[in-house]
Amino acid sequence: MKIKLCLIFLFFLFFIPISVFAKTTIKVGYLPILDHLTLVVSHERDNEKFKEVNVELKMFKRWDDMAGALNAGVIDAGFILSTVAMDMFNTGSDIKTVLLAHRNGSAITVKKDSDIHSATGLKDKKVAIPHRKATHVALLDKYLRKEGLSLKNVDATVVDPPYMEESMKLGRIDAFIVAEPFGAKAHLHGVGRVLVLTKDIIDNHVECIVVVRNQFLKQNISAVQEWVESLIRSGKFIEKDKRETKLNSVSAIAKKYMGHDEEVVREGLKNPTDRILFDNLNPEISDFQKIADIAVQAGIIEKVDLEGFIDSRFYK
């Protein structure tokens, strides 16, 4: 009997492929913004339970650093601004969009005591943006055009998101547009107030998306599928946590992975509750087209082959 068991063990040891037992590791980049909550919620709740994939997280502070890491193959996937990813795709990056990270999610914030109360008030003002090709720039241009203005009528300057509140406090900028929780943080600290939420510029708009290097994607379809399904579940969990609790679970996870105060996280997610949405992450071409069109109009990207850019088969 012992000999038989030994033979069975040796058979499995030498003849069953290692890939049967090993998980596929996917290295994923993100920034410490609430737009990327599904990633960290998924990691916290599911990473030890995955059968085929192991997710390694890499936090960046700047969009260009993440884009460079994607292009160099340092990371396999990233939660990244849609228009930045579109520009990367246009200039030769072999990446595919597999999911939305969220919908809505940003605000134009002005000084608390500012006399700016509409788009016209931004004329000739210094407005901080997170990246020259950010979705925020296209949304800012869209907002200005409602009053007959455009980006040409403001002084748009790049400031890394963590430094926007301090720049406003020191009087270096008059306004900023950025992902949460930085607008919520400025509001809670008495530095700024919301001029307009981006959901009120274009409702349910695409902003950050999930992209994967195409070479990795083609070689690891089932692993990516398992991960994407977890991200979708995590989005639903966040929305449930909004409705049923005071975001106790989600705010604690955000603090652990992003370092934000839990009160700031709650403000950024629940005031109002559709400030950022996570329950419909379907990467539909029609939704991407809306953002691509205003980005082209703003002059920050060229036209994009969205059918080549989006791989929607993983959304189930």
Score class of each variant (00 low, 15 high):
R45A: 11
A298N: 02
K112S: 09
V40N: 14
D279K: 07
L100D: 09
K126E: 01
R145N: 07
V53P: 02
V228L: 11
H102D: 05
K23P: 00
S230T: 03
E284K: 13
V154P: 01
P130H: 08
R243L: 09
P162N: 02
H136D: 13
S93L: 13
A101I: 10
R243H: 04
L13E: 09
E56V: 15
V110Y: 15
L277H: 13
T24W: 04
L139P: 04
D141P: 09
S19M: 01
K111M: 12
R62F: 09
K133I: 11
N47K: 05
P181T: 01
L122K: 04
D174A: 08
E165V: 03
A138G: 09
L170P: 06
C208T: 14
K152C: 04
A67S: 13
F50M: 02
D141G: 03
I301A: 06
D203R: 15
K185E: 12
M66P: 14
S251F: 13
G268H: 06
S118Y: 07
G268N: 04
V74S: 10
T38W: 03
F21P: 03
G148T: 12
D141W: 08
L306D: 02
S82H: 05
R103A: 12
V224W: 03
G78W: 10
E263F: 13
A254G: 01
F182Q: 07
P181M: 03
D115A: 01
L139E: 06
L100Q: 11
A179I: 09
W227G: 00
V41G: 04
S19E: 12
G183Y: 11
N271I: 12
R103W: 10
K2W: 13
E56S: 11
F21I: 05
